[in-house]
């Protein structure tokens, strides 16, 4: 039934009387319905189930009953010191890697934009991104290895690492993983920002030079406002990615040493699939989701504010 209506809606859309005519409102619902149903099955149902789980002690054996426990999982979470510590590590990790990625990526994009070999360099830069994160993690484990790792050897030779190994020191293990993430994802940020830089109006750039601005000043005055949108997208993407990251941590440290790299997703994974506390894991997952949504909303709102510049035109004076 829905399909039938949708088909008719489509033929109305290509009506020869007006190819650009917007689809009539009454067709919108039936046209969207298939996609909405699919989305509901794939994401809304698990989401609702997750909320249900967070109020239960979930039975593990097939057919085993779930026991309703009220707010037990939630109250346990708020008094769980490791939960809060994991949040702290995650915040440190995601903020630092995001700042580094966006900062370095922007710098890289500026350099790429000026380079004569832009296309070749982009191809090379894309390589880390093509790698599965787990593979990247394993690769870096070799580089960090305390027996034959390159970086280990370099740090030791330079006298920067006196004792222990890179991933074995609770002071620097987290930053070593930040380095992996920065290595893998800075190129993506660079690409996004580069696409923004292509839209920087050259005439405004030149006008600002003529006005007397130097290169740094003209960047902030003309280029930055023009690439703001791209930067927002890069920040959003990297933040949402970083806050749910787990691959690098599993491959490199598994949360150690001494829980110093146990970020929240890893703690959640541990609770759910090592200790099979599925109900407790669900509560943690929901808080993670909530923070992601809030941050995403914040960024998108900022973005929309910028786009909706008041363009009210008064009567024209010539």
């Amino acid at each position: 039934m829905a399909v039938n209506t949708a088909a008719r809606g489509t033929s109305a859309g290509v009506d020869p009387s007006g190819p650009n005519k917007p689809t009539p409102r009454r067709y919108l619902a039936p046209l969207l319905l298939p996609a909405v149903i699919l989305l509901a099955l794939l994401s809304i149902y698990p989401f609702v189930w997750l909320i249900y789980m967070s109020f239960n002690a979930v039975g593990l054996a097939p057919g085993a009953p779930n026991e309703f426990v009220g707010f037990d999982n939630w109250s346990r979470m708020f008094s769980d010191s490791q939960y809060w510590e994991s949040w702290g590590i995650l915040a440190k990790y995601s903020v630092v890697s995001m700042v580094l990625e966006v900062g370095l990526g922007t710098l890289l994009a500026i350099l790429l934009n000026r380079s004569k070999h832009e296309k070749l360099l982009i191809t090379i830069l894309l390589m880390p991104m093509m790698m599965a994160p787990v593979v990247a993690g394993l690769l870096w484990q070799y580089l960090y290895n305390g027996t034959f790792g390159w970086y280990f050897w370099i740090l030791r030779s330079l006298g920067l690492l006196d004792e222990g190994t890179i991933l074995g020191s609770s002071d620097i293990a987290l930053w070593a993983i930040v380095a992996v993430d920065v290595w893998e994802w800075t190129p993506l940020v660079a690409l996004i920002v580069l696409s923004g830089l292509k839209l920087v109006p050259q005439d405004q750039m030149e006008a600002s030079w003529m006005d007397g601005a130097g290169p740094v000043r003209s960047f902030f005055q003309v280029a930055l406002p023009a690439i703001k949108g791209s930067l927002m997208i890069a920040i959003l993407l990297r933040f949402m990615d970083n806050i749910r990251i787990i691959d690098h941590f599993i491959a490199l440290t598994g949360g150690g040493p001494a829980n110093s790299t146990k970020i929240l997703p890893l703690y959640l994974y541990e609770q759910s699939f090592s200790f099979f506390e599925l109900g407790y894991g669900a509560s943690i997952a929901l808080t993670l989701l909530l923070v992601t949504i809030l941050f995403g909303k914040l960024v998108v709102n900022r973005f929309e504010e910028r786009e909706e510049n008041p363009a009210k035109k008064d009567e024209e004076l010539v």
């Binding site: 109006p201 005439d203 405004q204 030149e206 006008a207 003529m210 601005a213 005055q221 406002p225 510049n309």
Partner: peptide, 17 residues
């Protein structure tokens, strides 16, 4: 350009939006 003390009007006006 900034040290030449010359002002320029561009075809596209090039105002800062």
């Amino acid at each position: 350009p900034r040290h030449r003390d010359i002002a320029m009007v561009f075809e596209s006006y090039a105002l800062y939006p």
